Computed example of a mutant assay.
Amino acid sequence: MGVAGLLKALSDVQQQVHISEYRGLRVGVDAYCLLHRGKLGYADALLRASPSCRSLESLGAAAGGAAQEALLRPILDLVTALRAVGAEPTLVFDGGPLPAKDATERSRRQARDAAMWRAAVSANSAPSAKLLGGAVDITPDMAAKCVQRIRSTGVSCIVAPCEADAQLAFLALNARVDVCISEDVDLLAFGCQRVLYGLDLRSGCGQELRRAELRRSKGLAPYRLDPETLADLCVLGGCDYLPSLPRLGLRTAAQLLHRGKGSVSRALQLARREGITVPSEYGRRFAEARLVFSCQAVFNDETRELQPLRPLPVSADAHCRKLLGLNLSHSAAGTQWEAFK
């Protein structure tokens, strides 16, 4: 998920924060991150329920009471904790698939299938909860049940047209939330100003990153991070929308951008000189992935319209609009927004 190595590279500008410091603030929460945390408890509950629930075919289906509760437990605990300190949570859920992320989603399906196979053949015995957790997919039915449960407590839940990341950024950029909670460092590249990662619900502590502090980081020195060009580094180093080139991870990408004085085209020229194979179509694919960070589809609940996170460049064609999720009609986006009510 996200950009490998970026969170570690930013360790020098992370600050430990207790959620009590968010008293009076509006907190946007990437709900799917918490649902994925709950998968292990979900699988464990399935194993404990009864022999009939231990089949791999039952994974991904609507769970029984114990499994359902285990899946939702991290979200329920976070909502309780935020309310206890006087913060106002808003949960944002992923919506439909983002075409620009098709390759990543295929890879993740393959990984789940592999985990399911390993669980099926593990030591000729009942599969472990850890193996089963890796095989669990969070289905729309699971998410819908979560939304219904959370909304019954009076907490706001939003379903994004595509990814929660872009919708959270829309809320942050429009002063609708003050800070976001996620496990995905991509939120900084989308434009969120404050993001809390690695929240330990038992202690209430996590590591906060602020976009304004990125320039102080020396984790990728001599390259100096810039909030406005962070997405360039994310794409060049490999992200969910474009895999990294062989031998071109985050640190190499930072070095190339430093030597190229921030120019992506110069960085790619340098990469070729150093023997890194850069396919002829890579420049086009880079530009498309870069657009995902700046212009992915979001839903504006005030205008009741689908729109890009930021205005599209004049050069964006129908193909780009499709990759960004902007081919969804306004009415369909609004229906999706209301779907889980």
Rank of each mutant, 00 (worst) to 15 (best):
L270H: 04
L242P: 03
E274D: 15
D226V: 02
T229D: 10
H258S: 00
L242Q: 05
A253H: 00
K261I: 01
Y282D: 06
L291T: 00
P246R: 07
E281W: 11
R284A: 14
G260Q: 04
L250Y: 09
R266K: 15
S263P: 03
R224F: 04
L250N: 03
L291I: 11
L225H: 08
S280C: 12
P279V: 10
L230G: 04
Y223G: 05
L270I: 14
F286E: 02
R272L: 10
I276V: 15
G262T: 01
L230K: 04
L250H: 06
Y223R: 05
A267R: 05
G238Q: 08
L257I: 05
R273V: 11
V278S: 11
R224N: 12
E288P: 08
H258K: 00
G237L: 08
A231T: 13
Q269P: 00
D240F: 12
V278L: 11
Y282V: 08
A287P: 03
T252H: 09
A254V: 12
S244I: 02
P279I: 12
Y241K: 03
A253F: 00
L245Y: 03
R272W: 04
G249K: 04
T229G: 10
G260R: 05
E274N: 14
L225K: 09
S244A: 15
L233K: 07
G275A: 02
L225M: 14
L245D: 00
D240M: 00
L291H: 05
R247K: 12
C234E: 02
A231F: 13
C234I: 00
D240E: 06
S265N: 13
T277K: 15
A221E: 14
E288M: 11
A289W: 03
V278R: 09
R251H: 13
L270D: 11
R290F: 10
G237M: 03
P243N: 10
G275Q: 13
P227S: 12
L230I: 07
L291A: 13
